[in-house]
Nucleic acid binder design. Structure first.
Length: 226
DNA sequence: GCGACAG
DNA sequence: ATCTTGTCGC
Protein backbone atom coordinates (compact mmCIF):
# COMPACT_ATOMS: atom_id res chain seq x y z
CA UNK A 1 0.00 0.00 0.00
CA UNK A 2 3.06 2.14 0.32
CA UNK A 3 3.99 1.11 -3.20
CA UNK A 4 0.68 2.02 -4.75
CA UNK A 5 1.04 5.54 -3.36
CA UNK A 6 4.53 5.81 -4.74
CA UNK A 7 3.23 4.69 -8.09
CA UNK A 8 0.62 7.43 -8.03
CA UNK A 9 3.27 10.00 -7.15
CA UNK A 10 5.43 8.83 -10.04
CA UNK A 11 2.46 9.10 -12.35
CA UNK A 12 1.70 12.65 -11.20
CA UNK A 13 5.35 13.60 -11.60
CA UNK A 14 5.22 12.40 -15.20
CA UNK A 15 2.05 14.42 -15.69
CA UNK A 16 3.75 17.54 -14.33
CA UNK A 17 6.70 17.05 -16.66
CA UNK A 18 4.36 16.62 -19.58
CA UNK A 19 2.39 19.75 -18.64
CA UNK A 20 5.61 21.74 -18.22
CA UNK A 21 6.29 21.28 -21.92
CA UNK A 22 3.25 23.44 -22.63
CA UNK A 23 4.57 26.37 -20.61
CA UNK A 24 4.98 29.70 -22.38
CA UNK A 25 7.39 31.95 -20.56
CA UNK A 26 6.98 34.86 -22.95
CA UNK A 27 4.65 37.82 -22.55
CA UNK A 28 1.32 37.18 -24.27
CA UNK A 29 0.64 40.90 -23.86
CA UNK A 30 2.92 43.68 -22.56
CA UNK A 31 2.72 43.90 -18.78
CA UNK A 32 1.61 47.55 -19.06
CA UNK A 33 -1.53 46.32 -20.78
CA UNK A 34 -2.51 44.09 -17.88
CA UNK A 35 -5.32 46.08 -16.26
CA UNK A 36 -7.57 43.60 -14.50
CA UNK A 37 -6.00 41.02 -12.20
CA UNK A 38 -7.63 38.18 -10.30
CA UNK A 39 -6.34 36.91 -6.97
CA UNK A 40 -6.98 33.28 -6.08
CA UNK A 41 -6.90 31.74 -2.61
CA UNK A 42 -8.18 28.53 -0.99
CA UNK A 43 -9.12 27.63 2.56
CA UNK A 44 -10.30 24.42 4.20
CA UNK A 45 -12.96 23.71 6.77
CA UNK A 46 -11.12 20.82 8.43
CA UNK A 47 -7.49 20.88 7.40
CA UNK A 48 -6.57 18.06 9.76
CA UNK A 49 -8.91 15.58 8.10
CA UNK A 50 -8.64 13.93 4.71
CA UNK A 51 -11.82 14.14 3.10
CA UNK A 52 -12.38 17.83 3.88
CA UNK A 53 -14.10 20.76 2.20
CA UNK A 54 -12.12 23.28 0.20
CA UNK A 55 -13.40 26.79 -0.43
CA UNK A 56 -11.93 28.93 -3.17
CA UNK A 57 -12.28 32.67 -3.74
CA UNK A 58 -11.35 34.65 -6.82
CA UNK A 59 -11.34 38.45 -6.58
CA UNK A 60 -10.94 40.51 -9.73
CA UNK A 61 -9.47 43.99 -9.35
CA UNK A 62 -8.88 46.96 -11.61
CA UNK A 63 -5.20 47.74 -11.05
CA UNK A 64 -5.62 51.43 -11.87
CA UNK A 65 -7.85 52.11 -8.86
CA UNK A 66 -7.90 48.80 -6.95
CA UNK A 67 -11.69 48.63 -7.25
CA UNK A 68 -13.32 45.21 -7.04
CA UNK A 69 -14.82 44.17 -10.35
CA UNK A 70 -15.98 40.70 -9.34
CA UNK A 71 -15.82 38.21 -6.50
CA UNK A 72 -16.77 34.53 -6.67
CA UNK A 73 -16.64 31.54 -4.30
CA UNK A 74 -16.83 27.79 -4.76
CA UNK A 75 -16.90 24.80 -2.44
CA UNK A 76 -15.80 21.26 -3.17
CA UNK A 77 -14.87 18.08 -1.34
CA UNK A 78 -11.11 17.64 -1.27
CA UNK A 79 -9.57 14.19 -1.05
CA UNK A 80 -5.95 14.71 -2.04
CA UNK A 81 -3.62 15.49 0.91
CA UNK A 82 -1.04 18.22 1.03
CA UNK A 83 2.18 16.85 -0.42
CA UNK A 84 5.03 19.29 -1.15
CA UNK A 85 5.40 19.86 -4.93
CA UNK A 86 1.91 18.46 -5.57
CA UNK A 87 -0.18 21.27 -4.14
CA UNK A 88 -2.10 21.70 -7.40
CA UNK A 89 -3.66 18.26 -7.07
CA UNK A 90 -5.17 19.35 -3.77
CA UNK A 91 -6.26 22.89 -4.56
CA UNK A 92 -6.85 23.13 -8.29
CA UNK A 93 -10.21 21.28 -8.48
CA UNK A 94 -11.94 23.81 -6.17
CA UNK A 95 -10.21 26.69 -7.88
CA UNK A 96 -11.49 25.57 -11.28
CA UNK A 97 -15.04 25.47 -9.90
CA UNK A 98 -14.72 29.11 -8.90
CA UNK A 99 -13.04 29.91 -12.21
CA UNK A 100 -16.12 28.64 -14.08
CA UNK A 101 -18.31 31.09 -12.19
CA UNK A 102 -16.42 34.17 -13.37
CA UNK A 103 -18.39 36.50 -15.58
CA UNK A 104 -15.49 38.80 -16.31
CA UNK A 105 -12.29 37.73 -18.05
CA UNK A 106 -9.31 39.02 -16.03
CA UNK A 107 -6.14 39.87 -17.94
CA UNK A 108 -4.08 37.84 -15.46
CA UNK A 109 -4.27 35.68 -12.33
CA UNK A 110 -2.13 35.69 -9.18
CA UNK A 111 -2.12 32.55 -7.04
CA UNK A 112 -0.83 31.75 -3.55
CA UNK A 113 2.15 29.51 -4.14
CA UNK A 114 4.79 28.94 -6.76
CA UNK A 115 4.87 29.24 -10.53
CA UNK A 116 8.06 27.75 -12.00
CA UNK A 117 10.03 27.91 -8.74
CA UNK A 118 9.30 24.19 -8.58
CA UNK A 119 11.38 21.05 -9.24
CA UNK A 120 9.44 20.36 -12.45
CA UNK A 121 8.36 23.96 -13.20
CA UNK A 122 4.80 23.02 -12.31
CA UNK A 123 3.90 24.93 -9.20
CA UNK A 124 0.19 25.59 -8.75
CA UNK A 125 0.29 28.90 -10.63
CA UNK A 126 2.00 27.30 -13.64
CA UNK A 127 -0.41 24.37 -13.54
CA UNK A 128 -3.43 26.67 -13.42
CA UNK A 129 -2.06 28.81 -16.24
CA UNK A 130 -1.50 25.82 -18.52
CA UNK A 131 -4.89 24.23 -17.77
CA UNK A 132 -6.83 27.46 -18.37
CA UNK A 133 -4.41 28.89 -20.95
CA UNK A 134 -4.31 32.18 -19.09
CA UNK A 135 -1.65 34.59 -17.90
CA UNK A 136 -0.72 33.48 -14.39
CA UNK A 137 1.80 34.37 -11.71
CA UNK A 138 2.76 32.66 -8.47
CA UNK A 139 3.28 34.66 -5.30
CA UNK A 140 4.08 32.47 -2.32
CA UNK A 141 4.85 33.42 1.25
CA UNK A 142 7.56 30.86 1.92
CA UNK A 143 10.25 28.81 0.25
CA UNK A 144 9.61 25.58 -1.60
CA UNK A 145 12.95 25.15 -3.39
CA UNK A 146 15.73 27.32 -4.77
CA UNK A 147 18.86 29.25 -3.86
CA UNK A 148 18.83 32.96 -3.19
CA UNK A 149 20.13 35.84 -1.13
CA UNK A 150 17.84 37.69 1.27
CA UNK A 151 16.87 41.05 -0.28
CA UNK A 152 17.62 44.31 1.55
CA UNK A 153 15.08 45.57 4.03
CA UNK A 154 13.44 48.14 1.80
CA UNK A 155 10.30 48.08 -0.30
CA UNK A 156 10.71 46.36 -3.68
CA UNK A 157 14.24 45.13 -3.06
CA UNK A 158 14.60 41.71 -4.68
CA UNK A 159 17.01 38.89 -5.53
CA UNK A 160 16.81 36.15 -8.14
CA UNK A 161 15.91 32.60 -7.12
CA UNK A 162 18.00 29.90 -8.78
CA UNK A 163 17.40 26.22 -9.40
CA UNK A 164 20.32 24.39 -11.01
CA UNK A 165 21.94 27.74 -11.79
CA UNK A 166 18.88 28.92 -13.71
CA UNK A 167 16.77 31.91 -12.68
CA UNK A 168 13.26 30.69 -11.96
CA UNK A 169 11.81 33.71 -10.18
CA UNK A 170 12.49 36.28 -7.51
CA UNK A 171 12.34 36.76 -3.78
CA UNK A 172 10.73 40.18 -3.40
CA UNK A 173 10.37 42.46 -0.40
CA UNK A 174 6.89 43.94 -0.91
CA UNK A 175 6.90 45.88 2.37
CA UNK A 176 9.58 47.14 4.71
CA UNK A 177 10.04 45.02 7.84
CA UNK A 178 7.95 42.22 6.38
CA UNK A 179 9.22 38.86 5.18
CA UNK A 180 9.77 38.77 1.40
CA UNK A 181 7.54 36.78 -0.97
CA UNK A 182 8.46 34.37 -3.78
CA UNK A 183 7.41 35.54 -7.24
CA UNK A 184 7.58 33.48 -10.41
CA UNK A 185 5.85 33.18 -13.78
CA UNK A 186 3.00 30.76 -14.10
CA UNK A 187 2.19 30.80 -17.79
CA UNK A 188 2.13 33.21 -20.75
CA UNK A 189 4.35 35.72 -18.97
CA UNK A 190 8.09 36.35 -18.64
CA UNK A 191 10.21 36.36 -15.51
CA UNK A 192 10.62 40.13 -15.55
CA UNK A 193 6.94 40.83 -16.20
CA UNK A 194 5.80 38.52 -13.39
CA UNK A 195 7.93 40.59 -11.03
CA UNK A 196 6.60 43.89 -12.42
CA UNK A 197 3.02 42.71 -12.21
CA UNK A 198 3.28 41.74 -8.58
CA UNK A 199 4.88 45.08 -7.77
CA UNK A 200 1.97 46.81 -9.50
CA UNK A 201 -0.55 44.71 -7.61
CA UNK A 202 0.92 45.54 -4.20
CA UNK A 203 -0.66 48.43 -2.31
CA UNK A 204 0.06 48.86 1.39
CA UNK A 205 0.51 45.30 2.55
CA UNK A 206 2.88 42.42 2.15
CA UNK A 207 0.61 40.48 -0.18
CA UNK A 208 -0.59 41.77 -3.55
CA UNK A 209 -4.14 43.13 -3.23
CA UNK A 210 -5.93 40.52 -5.35
CA UNK A 211 -4.76 37.53 -3.28
CA UNK A 212 -4.83 39.47 -0.03
CA UNK A 213 -8.48 40.32 -0.55
CA UNK A 214 -9.41 36.79 -1.58
CA UNK A 215 -7.81 35.55 1.63
CA UNK A 216 -9.72 38.16 3.62
CA UNK A 217 -13.05 37.30 1.96
CA UNK A 218 -12.50 33.62 2.70
CA UNK A 219 -12.07 34.40 6.39
CA UNK A 220 -15.45 36.10 6.61
CA UNK A 221 -17.06 33.50 4.37
CA UNK A 222 -15.99 30.79 6.81
CA UNK A 223 -17.28 32.80 9.79
CA UNK A 224 -20.72 33.33 8.30
CA UNK A 225 -20.88 29.73 7.13
CA UNK A 226 -21.28 28.33 10.65
C1' DG B 1 22.05 8.66 5.20
C1' DC B 2 19.91 13.19 6.55
C1' DG B 3 17.44 17.34 6.15
C1' DA B 4 14.17 20.37 3.43
C1' DC B 5 9.67 20.64 1.84
C1' DA B 6 4.24 26.20 -1.50
C1' DG B 7 -0.70 25.57 1.16
C1' DA C 1 -3.47 25.89 5.72
C1' DT C 2 -6.02 26.48 11.16
C1' DC C 3 -6.81 27.57 16.49
C1' DT C 4 -6.33 33.10 18.69
C1' DT C 5 -5.22 38.49 22.14
C1' DG C 6 -2.13 40.88 23.29
C1' DT C 7 2.30 42.42 22.67
C1' DC C 8 6.87 43.77 21.10
C1' DG C 9 9.59 46.29 17.59
C1' DC C 10 10.45 49.05 13.37
Amino acid sequence: MEDIDNQLIEKLKAQQISLSKKLKLKDRIPVQQIKTVAGIDVTFTDIWKNPTTGIACITVLDLDNFKILEKVFAEKKVDFPYIPTFLAYRELPVILEAYKKLNTTPDAFILDGMGIIHPRKMGIAAHFGVITDSISVGCGKSKLVGDFKIPENKKFAYEPVFIDGEIRGYILRTKKNANPVFVSPGNNISLESSLKLVMKAVKNYKLPEPTRLSHLFLQEYRRKRR
